[in-house]
Design a protein around this nucleic acid. Structure first.
Lengths: 384, 384
DNA sequence: TTAGTCATCGTAAACGTTACCGATAGGTGA
DNA sequence: TCACCTATCGGTAACGTTTACGATGACTAA
């Protein structure tokens, strides 16, 4: 007969069924249900982190006092404060940022959504973001969409579940619907768009000189004497494709050159498409004498391919592109580019996000342009 | 005269000083202290996240029931479960991962410490890590040490404060003391080293074929007929420098070639050092006829510089290196490399870490070698 | 009836931290 | 002596979630 743990009687204790694998009893004396207790003790975990409770126990003070001491708050005597701080140092205590964030409803973490880390541009952006985030005591959580809309949505969902304090987004090239983003923005989640921005939502945006750079590159080609300039224009739905194409068109128009549709080819940024485009152009009755590739990789690929096919660069074919500083210098002939400053883009974007996070008043500039630089190299320098 | 909120009397209420800017009173009837209450109501925040409490309130059930429904636990009727899940979907509820992790002492987050995101190798590793982490439902927190020991220590401290469930580390080149790491490892924090590993602590490690790759590269040079092979060996304190140098020496010894100290130069990975080394070697009475640069960037820089100085590659000078697939192909002449697979390194490292996190039994393989591949290109193909 | 059974629900503690507010001791001046 | 004051401390709710365990009502079989 079992003994009731409440009234310590065993006269009126009856079995009361099974529950969760354990035998259940009912004491009719005190009307109390209980189960047979199992005697396994939980294994004491090796403790990685010291808590303020540990410190409080050792010091013989309350956790409130420890918290005040560690945060240099008022209402505490200097003696106690110093003693606690010293002990905390000895136990190498560091506060559980999750608990802290959890308590005050913030996480000191921002989320970044980019298409691909491996692309040097985004790697540079990340580097810039990291730096500014560090300055502000924030941590960064990165997700890659791999240019997939579905993955992007899942990523953002995940970041949201992690309760990031803000979001930095550069959309995948597949992304054309922005209801998720808009929803979050309307709910007041701080966010900033950069590079692959979206115009559907009124978020602060970091743009680059897509139009201006394209214009400068094409004008430079024209000034070098190139007349039939083609553009490898990237996915048409991407805003940067559109902007760069506009710059291209604007430069041609300014200098009285015809816009020839056959010189404008849209596609993805793949090597196959770039080379196929070159082939197609070469078979025209009037092939282009210069190519503006809006993505530097395609420009480099075209240079390589042209060399194989015996096309003289820059005399027979001039080539310019947007892009990567290092690769452009290495390739031969070196590539004329409009250089973007990825690190700076990251810094500016992060700074703007922290502005939004801190003063919620949206008085600051909502649209920032990060300047680029035209760097002229041999791939576009025609011998007179 | 103020009224005591406890006994509703005002006959024996006296002022009892100021505290925190508010007037303080003392009721002598019921011996109760109180302050003048301020009537400002807190502004209701715009709510971004739905909680289980919200759902519980709407459904009229307890939060425990909601939790059970959302986690498909037992002890719940299918009808209730479905209704709750449906409502959760409508309110697009997603659980606060921080609260969840906080509750069970884990964060579903791993930390990664690398020297620099912008280096393509590490970007590739990160990409691999991300992928595996996603599979396991973990998030990734990245820190850059920028090759500074101090920053590295701070970073790890920060990740620890974030209570990451595990750590993936590639040390900065400055790092020679590992007491912090050892401390954490002894405390039971799951961690895995990769690339820039440390031998002082018995962590699982992901190594690459540093020795083997170097050996293959140098043997290839020897088979091509190069006799005086120099090595640009990187920082001597770095383990990969040592391993690659060992492979170099081993290959020379196997083929009966002399180890000439003047052909072995240690330094950082800077361009300046690479070019200065080349200059120094050229001024020797017997300059090398081939160079093995353990860092691909230096190899590329030497190729560029050699071309400027009219040195014929590969006939006058053969060049090989470790490294980056893309750049090696672009440079002219294309660079023979021992290619590492960064993405794979990241994947393997992450997988191993999750093994350690889940089954704490350390029965698994503690040292994994990620294979590389010798890719022969023109920079080392001497014309007979 | 009623002991025994089961499915399903609620209650409350716990995680680490902060902040609100009351408690206490010791002081000052009339 | 006593109203009044200040500095410094403790108690505890709250954040969102999971989980151990008790409560409840309905059912079954004797």
């Amino acid at each position: 007969m079992e003994i009731c743990p409440k009234c310590s009687t065993n006269t009126f204790v009856i079995r009361a069924g099974m529950i969760r694998g354990k035998v259940r009893y009912h004491c009719k004396t005190c009307d109390f249900h209980f189960t047979q207790e199992h005697s396994e003790k939980s294994i004491p975990q090796k403790q990685i982190h010291t808590t303020i409770k540990d410190i409080a126990n050792i010091m013989g003070v309350s956790i409130a006092t420890v918290s005040r001491a560690l945060n240099n708050k008022s209402d505490i005597s200097p003696k106690t404060r110093d003693a606690i701080q010293k002990l905390a140092l000895e136990l190498d205590y560091n506060p559980n940022l999750f608990a802290k964030g959890f308590q005050r409803g913030e996480t000191k973490t921002i989320g970044v959504v980019i298409p691909n880390i491996k692309r040097p541009f985004f790697a540079g952006v990340l580097s810039g973001i990291q730096e500014i985030a560090n300055e502000h005591g924030y941590r960064v959580m990165i997700c890659q969409s791999n240019e997939s809309y579905e993955t992007e949505v899942t990523n953002i969902q995940g970041l949201l579940a992690s309760h990031v304090d803000g979001l930095l987004i550069s959309h995948s090239k597949e992304t054309t619907r922005f209801n998720q983003i808009k929803n979050l923005f309307d709910k007041g989640l701080p966010m900033v768009h950069f590079d692959r921005i979206c115009t559907e939502v009124d978020t602060p945006k970091i743009r680059q000189e897509d139009f201006e750079g394209a214009f400068q590159l094409v004008e430079h080609l024209i000034q070098q004497g190139y007349q039939r300039i083609a553009i490898l224009a990237g996915p048409p739905e991407l805003l940067i494709s559109q902007k760069r194409k506009e710059g291209y068109i604007h430069a041609l128009e300014k200098h009285g050159l015809a816009i020839r549709p056959e010189y404008i080819l849209h596609g993805d940024f793949s090597k196959e498409f770039a080379l196929a485009s070159l082939d197609a152009w070469q078979q025209l009755p009037e092939p282009p004498d210069a190519i503006f590739a809006i993505h530097y990789l395609n420009a480099v690929e075209i240079i390589q391919y042209s060399k194989e096919r015996g096309i003289d660069i820059p005399n027979q074919l001039g080539i310019v592109g947007f892009g990567d500083e290092y690769l452009a210098e290495i390739v031969s002939p070196a590539l004329t580019v409009f250089h973007l400053f990825p690190q700076k883009v990251g810094e500016v974007a992060a700074r703007l996000l922290f502005d939004v996070i801190s003063h919620k008043d949206s008085s600051q500039q909502k649209d920032i342009l990060v300047q680029g630089q035209l760097i002229i190299r041999k791939s576009s320098l025609k011998k007179a």
